[in-house]
Design a protein around this nucleic acid. Structure first.
Lengths: 201, 201
DNA sequence: CGCGAAGTGGACATGTCGTCCGCTTCGCTG
DNA sequence: CAGCGAAGCGGACGACATGTCCACTTCGCG
């Protein structure tokens, strides 16, 4: 069902040893990612098409499809490193983001980190999570597991149903709408912190 | 920017007196809505196309476009009456859904009502809120105003930012994902009730 | 019954998608 | 360094959806 490709190299994620990437392929991949980053930032990320990216990168459409099945995958490839950095800090960083603080504080810190990420890369996240793909992403699974653990630590009843409800405000469309309304990232973070503490208390 | 059409009659929402709808037009409108309702229920609502509906209803595409600019409008027309019924109960129904109960209880009751609505008409809601249209709907404005009022009554700080965060879990994609995960409407309602009370306390 | 207007529906032009396949470029090997 | 097999490339192609347009039909009022 899912394409299941390695987002770093854009190759099918089979376990075996890779044949090593050819020079022209690497060159084109760089061109594609650079062009895509500009396009996503410049206009409505949801309107960017494979053709657009191919033209901007100066490659043919076939070349694009060789690695990425759609624009969503390209946006995800660009987003990947940023998400990974936050995941690292959640697992091994200092409290309250990392381990050691009370669950409510950690949840609030997670919210703050996500708001920062959204603010910095909203166009990529919008490009990466359009459609119903949002929940099938590896990243969503990670956020979900993290919040779920915090809820269980806080001994909250019905953690399973609460997890998705607590992640919902981090949907890129919600964030974009709030920013469009004139809310600052700080206000949004403050509101989410209240949510975090209200629910874990 | 927005089409701004009257969803009941499908006509442009100009204030003036309408010329009255012709018999063949009414007949076709009924056929279209009936066919669309079946289609939305039968397959993935996001995959239903104008062509599909036209064919199923036995009318031409031009006829469809005369009233509805896209499938989203059709889904909204079908959804409209259900949403309106809930809105009535919020304004004039018995507590805790209607006025008279503490804000936390009213918020929880609102959540419960929305979960019922989602459970009953998830395919329509999915069809109606695809894309970024979700926040521009009249209904979203209503839910937002309602929750905002409750938050202010509860003397919650930062109500503006919290409103959208509290509405986010009601997004159709979130609900669909939770159901897909095996959660029951009751479990979801319970989790949202906890959210409601946690935040207004 | 006749006429003007509202309504109809299919053809058309446009744009995106995803695939396919002949040609090019690479890099290993002898 | 020359040759070869394979990986990579890119434009052409068929399929499909969109939204518009306009010649034709149907309505309902006088």
């Amino acid at each position: 069902m899912k394409p299941r490709i390695d987002l770093l190299t854009g190759r099918p994620a089979g376990g075996g040893a890779r044949p090593r990437e050819r020079a022209d392929a690497a060159r084109n991949r760089a061109k594609v990612l650079a062009a895509a980053a500009e396009l996503f930032a410049a206009r409505d990320p949801r309107g960017v098409t494979m053709e657009d990216i191919a033209k901007a990168a100066g490659v043919g459409r076939g070349t694009l499809y060789r690695r990425y099945p759609d624009t969503v995958s390209i946006a995800q490839a660009l987003l990947d490193e940023h998400e990974f950095a936050l995941q690292e800090r959640l697992l091994r960083g200092d409290p309250p983001l990392g381990p050691g603080a009370p669950p409510g504080d950690r949840l609030a810190a997670f919210y703050a980190g996500m708001v920062d990420l959204l603010e910095a890369h909203i166009s990529l996240v919008l490009g990466a999570e359009q459609g119903e793909l949002r929940f099938t992403t590896g990243a969503y699974g990670f956020w979900r597991a993290h919040v779920r653990t915090l809820l269980i630590q806080a001994a909250v009843p019905e953690p399973e149903a609460l997890v998705d409800a607590l992640l919902a405000p981090l949907g890129p469309d919600v964030f974009a709408e709030q920013r469009r309304r004139g809310l600052t990232p700080e206000q949004i973070t403050a509101a989410l912190a209240r949510l975090a503490h209200g629910v874990t208390r």
